[in-house]
Design a protein around this nucleic acid. Structure first.
Lengths: 229, 229
DNA sequence: GCCAATATTTAGGCTTGCCTAATTGTTAGG
DNA sequence: CCTAACAATTAGGCAAGCCTAAATATTGGC
């Protein structure tokens, strides 16, 4: 066999690093620090350094990395990351729409399956769902070519004024929170009254519900809003 | 941390060993040799020995193994193997019925996904499909409790007489063959005329088709029949 | 501009699951 | 019943990804 030093291996672990970098670098594509990655992925910082070095030094690397200066996705890395996100959100939509999963349970299942479905599978569920643009959390599903419209929404914690808004999307990271939001009628598309409570929390109330929901700013950041419909 | 020597790890690899042992030991549950496992799994015999030793020496082991004498599933191993088979066949059925996969493509996708779906996912697709008893190849789907009716069919190569039979099931291992069979109308439930051709092949003909199909005994063994309906 | 606190990297290890090569067991033919 | 052929196991290694502990950069406060 020729000694072929290989390109990036596209394992579950690699996918997760790429997704995390995509998420943490934000729309402005800031460099991402090792420790924030370690945090998000639940691994030791040393493991991150290790992986980044591997990802950066393969031929046609997935990331651009400089010691002590954080990491960025390469075009190839971004492409792959968006593909995994597409998988994730299509699967979530599928579980919700076709298999009647409760909203708060779709994330974990999608998190596992996203790494293992084929392009074929992806296409079939997209077709079955009528090529949806949004997942059930209100997140936009990247197109096959990796294009994704910019988000025009902001976290409810960034609002300057109180008032009534439309719920744009809800982070899928915290199942318990998702369930609370659901019982308070706070789901994508709902109309939402937002005001600040005591120093460090927000008071949310869906116009479809009778009870206020008090959330720490930390949790409330999971709810993104746009101007009322 | 307490030093906990751990139980079997339920990885993809372990699942594949258990499935292979289940398949190779047959309905009579014969002991399975290392080399036949190595063959079926596409790994070196030494790797098999290695894995079998690990599987056999964990507390509540998945297999019963004696040096040079082959291996058998323990009750726990059989339970797990049947669960994986159930996953596999439910997924195949799902891909075929819900996602409109061509029959010959369901196997590969199921082979990957079977290791990663949750019990929840399993239950939902089973419900969606109306708790089917057979997959699209005609194979019986083990019930949740691991029960599986005995197969009353035989390989077409074991027939003593020529004649007309009903196609019971078709092995899902060979996609190309599956496709040929499909174009000749040979699918589970079809009526099939079987006669022997030259020394080493069989001639098959679906009553729904106009052309004979000549298959080596090797390939023909993939087609199982039962007495004509 | 220096130094302590914090962030990051290096060094060295572990487990899983695979490999090859060398060794040992089993078995069938003469 | 002995041995050649073949099957199986042991021994020793490798890559991926993780870990901890030790070393080294960077940075903010004075």
């Amino acid at each position: 066999m020729p000694p072929r030093r290989q390109g990036p291996a596209n394992t579950e672990s690699v996918d997760n690093y790429l997704k995390a970098i995509l998420a943490l670098s934000g729309p402005e594509e800031r460099r991402v620090s090792s420790s924030s990655l370690a945090d998000r992925l639940g691994v030791a910082p040393a493991s991150v350094t290790n992986m980044l070095q591997k990802l950066a030094t393969s031929p046609s690397p997935f990331v651009e990395y400089e010691r002590h200066r954080g990491v960025l996705l390469s075009p190839a890395g971004k492409r792959r990351a968006l593909e995994v996100v597409r998988h994730h959100r299509l699967i979530e939509t599928f579980l919700y729409e076709v298999l009647d999963y409760p909203l708060e349970e779709v994330h974990d299942e999608a998190e596992r399956l996203e790494h293992f479905i084929s392009e074929q599978f992806e296409e079939r569920i997209a077709a079955k769902l009528g090529h949806p643009e949004f997942d059930p959390h209100g997140h936009c599903i990247p197109a096959m070519d990796g294009k994704m419209p910019k988000q025009a929404s902001i976290p409810s914690t960034d609002l300057h004024e109180q008032g009534t808004f439309t719920v744009d999307s809800i982070s899928d990271q915290d199942a318990a929170l998702l369930k609370r939001l659901k019982t308070h009628g706070i789901t994508p598309g709902a109309r939402l009254q937002v005001r600040s409570g005591s120093a460090d929390d927000l008071v949310l109330r869906s116009t479809a519900a009778s009870k206020n929901l008090h959330l720490s700013r930390d949790l409330a950041a999971a709810v993104r809003v746009r101007s009322a419909r």
